[in-house]
Amino acid sequence: MTLRFRNLAAVGSTAHGSQIDEFLTTEIDGEKWTCIRPTRRLSRLEFDVKSKGFCQVPVVLFNSSPAACHLDDENRVWYSNLPEPHEIATSFLLADDWLSDRLAERRFVFDAIKTQVDAIHATLEADYVKTEAVVEHLRAWKELCTEAFPYMFLVLTIDDLVLHLAQRWIDRQCSPGQRTELLAQVCRSVYVRNAIANNAIPRLSKSLQFPPSQLFRSIGYIDRSIFLRSEALANVIARCEVWHKAQTILHVTERASLAFQLSEENFHVMGSLTTACENLLYRFSLSVAPEAPTEFANRYRDLTLEECVADIQSRSTRRKT
């Protein structure tokens, strides 16, 4: 199957609504560094929790050498040696075996995250939260972020490209209005439906916040047959006079639907983990500084995970003695 990517870089804005020119690039000693979505700022703690995962992206996705990343003075994350979006998009669209393997690995990691979120909820539901449990959950947070980030990155930079490609193929067969109807039918997610039903919507900001948001569980799965239930797609396919064209439209629509669902899964599942860990830190802060837990918890934003753990352990020991 031949799919062309040229001109994709000329898309004025992403389907998320953020401008592509928000991607910053610079060169240091001949090495290209990129800042993806520079408006997103990470605290020192979040960077420490996620940075190993950032570096693992090329290793996990393409078995190549690790990326490098650093946090600048304005708390923006810069990367070098990350796979190019077009490289990932090409694999996502055309390398079926590669994609199946990555999705199977991703499923394993995301299921582990859901289990971990349940474990944190169970800890928080208890009357007394043991320090050992807090420490264990915080370390698991970092491990899971390290494992999950490469699979999050799988769609982070390409969902808009894939959607745009699908739009271009669909546009050849129908009007813009019919195209919106079609994409509105295939860009659906079980996570979103369940989140609305359970009033469990993650907040938009991925940064740590204290006091924390309300705990929630993300309930859902990737439904790869959603696109097949689209009447609008069936009508478009029926109008195709050439089988090759119908086959391509089906293929890119399926991948656009998949990319959309993976992106929503990122948002809902990772949001539930971040919120759970925020609640964990806040609960501990409440126990040691009940008069000002928010200020106390905010201190942790400027520490690394192991510095947080050391602080929690030392305060817990002092409390016991």
Partner: peptide, 8 residues
């Protein structure tokens, strides 16, 4: 945009 969480 089309795929922003709020639009979904």
């Amino acid at each position: 945009g089309f795929t922003c969480h709020a639009a979904s």
